[in-house]
């Protein structure tokens, strides 16, 4: 199973992923320059949060035990058995947005203009998700789950080592993540 991972130290907060996600997945025209002229502003399924010091692209984790699935009143949310991806059937969504309240990561968004909830589906019908494809610093990558866990393990061990050797204070954790050295 593949997932979108974010290298925090590479994310510059440019929000290119947001622009192109909204264009490719939320617009009728599918081109940025036309999408910007559409009457209903397209919305992205990925969001960049944070500040100049630390930014991070957030999108659906497709939780193994996903609260949104249980909360959906109409059965619009369901899991694709082949990929494990949590998908939304927009024609079944009534825009009650209960799922947005239950999502522990806050990555399902209401789209009032279209009366639907909006979430990342990893661009399941495309070879590579749009956000991964357009990320200028390659902060977003599509990797297998086991690779993801390995990467997290390596990063965590490096961080722990750094904290013990140099800083010793938990408050420096964010600085370490944002440092250009690439931890």
């Amino acid at each position: 199973m593949k997932t979108i991972a974010v290298h925090l130290e590479r994310c510059t907060g440019c929000r290119t992923c947001e622009l192109y996600c909204a264009t490719e997945r939320g617009s009728n025209s599918k081109t940025l320059l036309q999408a910007a002229q559409e009457d209903v502003a397209p919305k992205a399924r990925i969001r960049v949060e944070g500040s100049n010091r630390l930014s991070v692209a957030l999108q659906c984790r497709h939780c193994l035990q996903a609260p949104c699935l249980d909360s959906c009143l109409t059965g619009a949310l369901n899991r694709d058995s082949a990929t494990g991806t949590v998908l939304i059937q927009e024609n079944l969504c009534i825009g009650c947005w209960t799922c947005t309240l239950f999502c522990p990561y806050g990555v399902i968004y209401p789209w009032p203009e279209r009366k639907i909830a909006l979430k990342c589906d990893r661009c399941i019908y495309m070879e590579v998700p749009v956000c991964v494809d357009v990320c200028p610093t390659k902060a977003l990558v599509l990797i297998e789950m086991d690779q993801y866990e390995e990467a997290i393990r390596r990063k965590t061990s490096r961080l722990i080592t750094d904290l013990q050797d140099e800083n010793g204070r938990e408050s420096t954790l964010l600085l370490d993540l944002a440092s250009p050295g690439g931890r």
Binding site: T16, A36, V134
Partner: peptide
């Protein structure tokens, strides 16, 4: 893609 904000 070249910077989307600048292109717009």
């Amino acid at each position: 893609p070249q910077d989307g904000f600048m292109r717009l």
